[in-house]
Each structure stands twice: as structure tokens, then as C-alpha cells.
Simulated assay, not measured.
Amino acid sequence: MANQVEPKLIEPLFQALQKERFVTIATIDHETGGPNVSAISWIYAPDESRIYFAVDNRSRIVQNIKNNPLVAVNLIANESTYSISGKAHVKVEKIEEVPLKLALVEIEINEVRDVMFYGSKISVEPKYEKTYDAQAAAKLDNQVMTALRNA
């Protein structure tokens, strides 16, 4: 059902965010003041009220959040599309357990809104695959997701 609004993640969304997955994140661009949308996959919900994600600490996402903490994550799950909005901040500038220069960002959720258009449902969720060395990708993904779970 479209346009339901919750103050935190509902159970199917919480479960969806227990593993790496494709989402987009919208921030306010620090230079233009307009919207900026990026795709990320290293995302994890430690509880129903917060989301962690990891990105390169030189990323435009990080610069944007430092300038304006308001963000929205677009999640396709539970046969629908959700906008998860809240305030973000850089929790860790560089995750020590990971060989890349990744920042750990925390979002404090304000609202979870079902934004799927009326009379429809998602029949197939987006899938992606890493295009570099599969073994190296799996090792890095495991390191990053472990760091997010232990944050």
C-alpha cells in the first residue's frame, strides 16, 4: 500500500538492511545547493532507528553531509520503494579494519515513507555484480560489512 509513513524501519526493511545491497542516497550538494544522488552498497542497519554506510572518505557524499546533514536513502525492498530520511554525520573518518580510506556514516532515521506509486508493486529487486576481481571484491565486502556490524 502506498504512502505509509513510519518513524523507524519496519521489520522487512530492517531485515533487508542486514546485508550489502543496492540503494541510492540523496544529499544536498555542498557547491550547488541542489540535490545529489549516488548509488552505494555498503549499508547496514544496526537497529530500527539508525543506518550505517561506508563510502570513500573523499567522496562528495561526505563533503555534502558535513555541509548539510539531511539525507534520504532510496531502498527497493518488500515489494515496494521506500524513502528513508534523516540526519547523517560522519561517525568514523577512516575505518581502521579496511585497507581503503572509507568513512563510516551514521543516519539517525526521522521518517520511513513508502513512495511506490499507487496500484503497483516491485516484482524484481535490482541486482548488481562487482566487475573487478571476484575474490578481492568478496574479501573487501566482508571487511567493510564486518566493520559496519561492529561499529
Rank of each mutant, 00 (worst) to 15 (best):
Q4Y: 00
Q4I: 00
V5S: 00
V5I: 03
E6H: 13
K8E: 13
L9Q: 05
I10H: 03
I10D: 05
P12M: 01
F14P: 13
Q15L: 13
Q15D: 15
K19P: 11
K19C: 10
R21Y: 05
T24K: 03
I25A: 05
I25V: 11
A26N: 05
A26W: 00
T27C: 02
I28G: 08
D29Y: 01
E31L: 11
E31W: 06
E31M: 05
G34D: 14
P35L: 07
V37K: 04
A39L: 04
I40S: 03
S41D: 13
W42R: 01
I43K: 02
I43E: 08
I43T: 06
Y44G: 07
A45S: 12
D47A: 06
E48K: 13
E48F: 08
S49H: 15
I51Q: 06
F53W: 11
A54V: 00
S59N: 09
S59C: 03
R60P: 10
R60D: 13
I61V: 13
V62F: 03
Q63I: 01
N64H: 06
N64P: 12
N64D: 14
I65E: 08
K66D: 10
K66A: 05
N67C: 06
N68Y: 05
P69E: 05
A72N: 03
L75H: 00
N78G: 13
S80D: 12
S80H: 09
Y82P: 05
S83L: 00
S85A: 02
S85T: 04
A88M: 06
H89T: 14
K91E: 15
V92M: 04
V92H: 07
K94Q: 14
E97I: 00
V98K: 04
P99S: 04
P99Q: 02
L100V: 11
K101D: 15
K101Q: 15
L102H: 12
L102C: 02
L102S: 03
L102G: 03
L102A: 09
V105Y: 03
I109K: 03
I109V: 01
V112F: 00
R113D: 00
R113F: 00
D114A: 00
M116F: 05
Y118P: 10
S120D: 07
I122D: 08
S123I: 15
V124R: 11
V124T: 14
E125N: 14
E125D: 15
Y128H: 11
T131L: 15
Y132N: 13
Q135A: 14
K139W: 11
L140A: 06
D141T: 12
D141C: 07
D141Y: 08
M145D: 08
R149H: 09
N150W: 02
N150K: 14
